[in-house]
Design a protein around this nucleic acid. Sequence first.
RNA 1: GGAUUCUUAGCUCAGUUGGUUAGAGCAUCUGCCUUACAAGCAGGAGGUCAUAGGUUCGAGUCCUAUAGAGUCCACCA
Length: 856
Amino acid sequence: MLETKYDHKKVETGKYDTWKNNGYFKCGDTSKEPFTIILPPPNVTGKLHLGHAWDVSIQDIVARYKRMNGFDVLWVPGTDHAAIATEAKVVKKLKSEGINKYELGRDKFLDACWDWTREYGGNIRGEWAHMGCSLDYTKERFTLDDYSVNAVNKVFIDMFNKGLIYKGKRIINWDPEAKTALSNEEVIYKDTKGAFYHIKYYIEGTDDYLDVATTRPETLFGDTAVAVNPKDPRYKDLIGKNVIVPIVNRIVPIIGDMHADMEKGTGVVKITPAHDPNDFEVGNRHNLDRIVIMDETAHMTEETGKYKGYDRFECRSELLKELEDKELLIEIEDIVHSVGYSERTDVMVEPYLSEQWFVKMDQISKDLINMQQDKDSKVNFYPKRYEKTIIQKAEECYDWCISRQLWWGIRIPVWYKDDEMVASVESPGEGWVQDPDVLDTWFSSALWPFSTLGWAMEDKSLFERYFPTNFMSTGYDIIFFWVFRMMFQAEQFTGKNPFKDCYMHGLIRAKDGRKMSKSLGNGVEPIDMVEKYGADSLRYYLTTNSAPGLDLRFDEDKLTSTWNFINKIWNASRYTLMNIEDIKEIKFNNLSFSDKWILTKFNSTVKQVRKNMDRYEFQNVGSELYDFIWSDFCDGYIEFSKFNTDNEGTKSTLLYVLTGILKMLHPFMPFVTEEIYQMLPIKNCDSIMIDSYPVYDKKLDFKETLELMNSVREFITKTRTYKKDNNIGKDCKYTFRCSGDKEIENLICNVLKLDIKNIAYQEEIDTLEKLVLDYNNNDFSANIEFYYSISLEDREKEKEALNKQKEVLESQIARREKLLSNPGYVNNAPKELVEEEKNKLENEKKELETVLWKLK
RNA sequence: GGAUUCUUAGCUCAGUUGGUUAGAGCAUCUGCCUUACAAGCAGGAGGUCAUAGGUUCGAGUCCUAUAGAGUCCACCA
């Protein structure tokens, strides 16, 4: 027997290991159709946050749903080495021990990284277990294992040989703290307080100067020109003349270039080709020198003279003093402008001239766009608008900087000897030196959908069976980092898209709508929520409380409501189990009206739920199930069944519907549904997770009963309201007639507790005052009269109520008559709707008649 | 500058291909410890669906504009 209260801790203990040990998470039944999901790999040393909890819940729901629908489901777990993040942590740790990364050397540093990974890695596995994720651990991968490394090498070498990967000297985004290049996606732009510094650049041989406005005065050491717009009447005559760069006193030309915007600043812009991407382009057009004035740690080089060794910010403040002293500073204008910061280290990104590896994107992007235009081969996004986002990204693509000046990662498989350069995993021979850099973590992540399946391994059987994958779920924040790149790499190397459906969920925010962050201290740990409410509650809450692609404000009160819902299910199960203990088999004979009604309702719920599950509309599934279980099954059917517990058909219906409810809920609430399933007197399988998902059953669809019972329920509610409005107590004498079967009459009397002792005698009918409630619907009508001595006051109250009712009815009738006399509506609207309107109008008219009669 | 999302009850959110009386949770009011559940039951109250136009027989839903809020991309000397 179940306890009276649901205890999530008790329920969730032990089940995960049982499932896992019984092999329910493993794929491999080749008699079934495969269905593959690849888990987006979290940072190996990271921990589960609410966003992950949401993400894995969605995937587990799909995995369990598909498994119950007869698919051979493979859900691949894995983790990511997270190059920059991990390396930064290890560097910090070593530093605290007084060890410098470079002094330690590459090999020993990597050992330290592996130690770190082993020490802090693997926690995430326990968290997947807490959440109930049905992952196939026999296929677990890591971005630095052979599956991944082999694929990365193979892809890199192939792209290198095709010319899709090249090495180039460019201005890239540089993180001076991590001392590595970054891709454009890894730069976060933030509004920052700064200033326009107006500096005098004297025109050579004159006392005139140009007012040059810059936000970064310290870069003047690298100036090799000053540009004006060739159409700018203010300055066009100056083109060809020279100016003197202040402090360094370098003579540089005034050039005409469209880059100079007449509207912006003073219309004069200093050109620093080695420290600004736009200036770099200008420099190329005008053949300007590139003077590097900062090193890899953003400290000034010897080009800056006495400022050598200064940090970039120190240099700025000292330089400004000097400019002021020398009366070269015209003014300082405060502005707010957006400045790039490193996604990982949060330091200000420095545009930096260096040699890096790039993926050439133009053709690849075109291939992606073509693929997306083909209905059969494209990725279906949920919600659909992300298809457009992807296409837009592809259209405005720029080359992807993939080299990182780090050690923790997959090393670039390129070897050098003198002027020669060869791409190869192994050294081509004596005297060859490998490129020191590693690849962007996202380069390996991009291959994840096929690398994990053994695409670059000898045994390709998994790849052949389970690729392309079926379902991908992730937050919209990494669409460019990851989804886009997975798509083009799979297209380039497998000729197919990596997944058929891609579900994008939003971000989790704090209750007030702000982002959850450490600095605000408003973060919520999913594991704490699991502890407090159970994984079942958390999963259901996260997945049914928002529409696809939209953010979710985390609200613990709603989690409580979800817990209450589970407690409700628990108690409905408790009731059911108490009443079906002796059942031998499910037999639908001698079904009562209410049995037929709930079976019909159940059937239509199954239909709706399946439809929405197939479209990943989980919020709809959630409300369908909530409504059916709470309003129909518990408040409606269970109450009816209480007067019918000896009936075999009713027992069968209770068990059948409860079993179906558990199965439909199982993908959302795996633990509690398994707990209750195990107590069912009749069940097909050892575990609910290997049982089948409910299907619509035509034999159990009783449409007429549905309508009749809806009327009966409406009558019951109306009677209750009526009694309450008129202060009619339990002992009031009554008479009752209804059009339905004797069974219906009994049901109503039972539910409304119309005590047989209180039926009014003829004498009472003749002498006492009465209150009458008439109910008319085309398939059911009922009349109930209550007899008692009525006061004048009550009589007035009743009259008032009737008048109000009259008004409402009259306006409704008028509205409906107008509607039905509109030929446009009658001709164009669906016939059933028109019929229904007509019926309603009829009933309202009848009702109005009674009200009018009573008023007399 | 380009794209995109949101604006629905006091609060947080649902609302399928347009179908006429817009739903839920929480909060609130009334009455109930009825033996599955008081973390519950029964019955209420609460909304001119941001604004203004348009399409349509019919608009929360489609179109246009406006206002406010958010996000992404590009630019930012």
